[in-house]
């Protein structure tokens, strides 16, 4: 089956100071048309690198193995105009709109630039479209906003502008790289709601990156959990949150605060998150896992299909059996 996005054994190595530094190690996942997939992990787990690999915006000197196909087209083979066309059809909603929108150009310019270049629209026509979409994402006085500069808008408004610019590309697939992390909590909820609604209305597929397991579960059909540049578990969001299979997912789930439970201290996962280049032999999580066995240190567990998804842990069945007793 070929989805809108298929990532197949993706391994990315950055040029390090003394030796190459792996950031992604054998990542595979796919997204079907209209499906939202969450990608959850701690800082340095390789979430953003996955997005950057998809739009081929890796730092210079990066090496990429494996392949990424968008609607069956292998991105690695694309050059020049074909690559630009593909990029234009997969807009990224970046984390920090303040940094990701040119500060010396107007909001209108940011929104219409791609339309005028890719579709050869006139300025007036492009501005009409931009104003309509700004309206849809809940930006008031859209016409006036087009004349304003990024510094004149609040972070929430600016992120809506970013979402509008993504929607203006009329994509089939959205790439959202922690779109609400830089916003305050109330704005986060509003922006998330707008994005989710417009995505469902248009039936867009989305790769949604976040470090918030619950947020991913709330808006995505499936959720993938990453650790040290690897995918540990991919499953339907609801069951992933309720019955995590991988010990790492389970640890993440228990570490989250809850309004129902009253605790003095939040549960934490012992140790610190590892990046791909620090990952030990065998399972990347073996230095922090409560259920570690000798076999976990010897061989890297493959992603295996289990229940409603896939998981990369050799002891899943054992642990599940124990927890059900």
């Amino acid at each position: 089956m070929s989805g809108i996005l298929d990532i197949d054994h993706l391994t990315v190595t950055l040029a390090g100071e003394d030796r190459p530094k792996p950031v992604l190690s054998d990542v595979s996942m796919s997204i079907a048309e209209g499906e939202a997939v969450g990608l959850v992990g701690e800082s340095g787990s390789g979430k953003s690198m996955t997005v950057r690999s998809i739009i081929r915006l890796l730092p210079p000197g990066a090496r990429m193995e494996g392949n990424i196909r968008v609607r069956g087209v292998d991105l690695g083979t694309l050059r020049g105009a074909a690559l630009r066309k593909m990029r234009a059809e997969m807009p990224v909603i970046f984390q920090d709109p303040r940094a990701h929108i040119n500060p010396v150009r107007s909001v209108g310019d940011f929104l219409t630039e791609a339309l005028r270049i890719h579709r050869r629209m006139s300025r007036a026509a492009a501005e009409d479209r931009a104003a309509d979409v700004l309206d849809e994402v809940g930006v008031s006085e859209a016409r006036r906003r087009l004349r304003q500069y990024p510094h004149e808008l609040s972070g929430g408004l600016l992120q809506r502008v970013m979402i509008a610019s993504a929607l203006l590309a009329e994509p089939r697939l959205l790439l959202a790289d922690e779109p609400t992390t830089a916003l305050d909590v109330t704005t986060q909820a509003e922006v998330m709601a707008v994005m989710d609604e417009l995505r469902r209305e248009r039936g867009l597929a989305m790769l949604f990156i976040t470090h918030d397991l619950e947020l991913a579960a709330a808006i995505c059909d499936r959720t993938a959990v990453m650790y040290a540049g690897r995918v540990m578990e991919v499953r339907a969001s609801a069951s992933l949150l309720e019955r995590p299979l991988h010990p790492y997912t389970a640890a993440l789930a228990t570490a989250r605060p809850s309004i129902e439970r009253k605790v003095d201290r939040l549960t934490t996962i012992p140790g610190r998150p590892l990046s791909a280049f620090e990952a030990p032999d065998g399972c990347a999580f073996n230095t922090r896992c409560a259920h570690v066995r000798e076999s976990c240190r010897e061989q890297r567990p493959e992603l295996r299909t289990l229940l409603d998804g896939q998981v990369a842990c050799v002891r899943v069945e054992e642990l599940q059996a124990v927890s059900h007793d």
């Binding site: 970046f94 990701h100 929108i101 040119n102 010396v104 150009r105 791609a114 270049i117």
Partner: peptide
């Protein structure tokens, strides 16, 4: 190297245009 230039590249804007409209325009200051 700034993020806003990466945004422009990620939107499929041709590199020459990115250089002229974003990098050089901002460097003009």
């Amino acid at each position: 190297h700034l993020e806003h230039v990466q945004t422009a590249v990620s939107r499929g804007i041709p590199y020459a245009t990115v250089v002229r409209r974003h990098a050089l325009r901002n460097a003009a200051i």
